[in-house]
Design a binder for these strands. Structure first.
Lengths: 215, 215
DNA sequence: CGGTCATGTAAGGACCCTTCACATGAGGGT
DNA sequence: ACCCTCATGTGAAGGGTCCTTACATGACCG
């Protein structure tokens, strides 16, 4: 039986693993991935400092689990935005870029654990797989987008996916979050990313990507 | 008088501040920005744990100083690559993108301190200024590049600079370093970034950006 | 009802950060 | 040339946090 977040705290707490993950997210959100300790997560969950060791070998394994869950949510968010490329791949691509930023902004703790915590993808196979699956959404989107182009001009879909990922991550990482690391901008991060993606797609030769600009 | 790295260690060490910065860089390179302590830097420099307090108020101030120096070197590296846009802005832009990646790869400790250490730019005015100056190189490059376009089609140079910065940072951050955080790629990070920049510039309408795809 | 094992606890050792009083020697003023 | 001053480094100690090893509890199963 799994309890909800307000469940009764049994002698054995019942669902300490979940509580630890939530504690880690809370602490990462407050103080960044560096300023979070195993013992403090235990304290936040109301158990002794040694209890977490029954569920995670060490701090890194907890972080890796948080990152894995983050990638799973991330994949779901991107998929929900992509919606199989409907109504058309270009509009869906635009939505997906926004979803990327939304995730970075609304789930900064997950995002930090995924990309900024210094966790090697090789920490656990599950983590690597989750990351692969999240990127696979972008890759499939790029494939469908590229398929709308004349065959002789098609760029490699993998490369397109990587470019979009890099641009999205760069914008999110440099300008996306509202916290201290943010730099002042004359435009919103969303608009910046959308404009960048459109310019990039126009550079690929997508006819619909910049129609309003080509006088 | 300033000693080189192998200088004689006087009773007062002579240039402890520099030694601490080098120690910080070494430790960051080895264990990431998180796994580095004030006391360990002192040990690495061969002094007592209290000595660093004569030069830096706390650990964050040391990190901020490392980041500031990193931004200064970064600015110099970008400027050296840009070379006032010679022989033509497009080729110079390409060089600058490569210089960005080279810096991230060859100076991972500086890069970590600058972008991944969680140091707020507001920690010190000098840090913020150094960051501004580094970006100013990209901004000026974008301005010169944009100036080669027909006036009615010119995009905002600031936006272009931000796009290039975001793309470069994204590539460097996700695929740039050879360490554990790297993901396997079918192409080098340099080629990925170069291709992305060219596609982007072509999307801006730069006439020369499409044809040349040479190594 | 009793055994076994997962789960949580308690105490101990280690490290780190920071601060104090004190030691050292480089450099300036005379 | 000499002494004084002050920046720089030392040593030790307090306070705190963290990580880990030996022990206790009770949930589940035959």
């Amino acid at each position: 039986m799994t309890w909800g977040k307000g469940g009764p705290r049994g002698y054995h707490h019942g669902n300490l693993k979940e509580a630890l993950v939530r504690a880690a997210l809370e602490l990462i959100a407050q103080k960044g991935p560096a300023g979070f300790t195993f013992a403090e997560a235990a304290r936040w969950a109301g158990v002794s400092p040694a209890a977490p060791y029954r569920h995670f070998r060490d701090r890194d394994e907890l972080l890796a689990d948080v990152a894995r869950r983050g990638f799973e949510r991330f994949e779901a968010a991107l998929n929900a935005a992509w919606q199989d490329g409907t109504p058309d791949p270009l509009a869906a691509f635009d939505r997906t870029g926004k979803a990327y930023l939304d995730f970075a902004r609304n789930e900064p703790a997950y995002y930090s654990a995924m990309f900024e915590a210094g966790i090697a993808p090789t920490t656990s196979p599950e983590l690597a797989q989750a990351g692969e699956r999240a990127f696979a959404v972008l890759r499939r989107a790029a494939e469908m987008l590229v398929a709308t182009m004349p065959q002789k001009d098609r760029p490699p879909a993998l490369m397109v996916g990587l470019h979009i990922w890099a641009l999205s991550h760069g914008v999110a990482s440099l300008f996306g979050r509202g916290d201290a690391a943010r730099r002042t901008l004359p435009m919103s991060a969303e608009d910046l990313l959308e404009a960048g993606v459109l310019i990039y797609l126009r550079g690929l030769g997508l006819p619909a990507a910049g129609a309003e600009r080509s006088a």
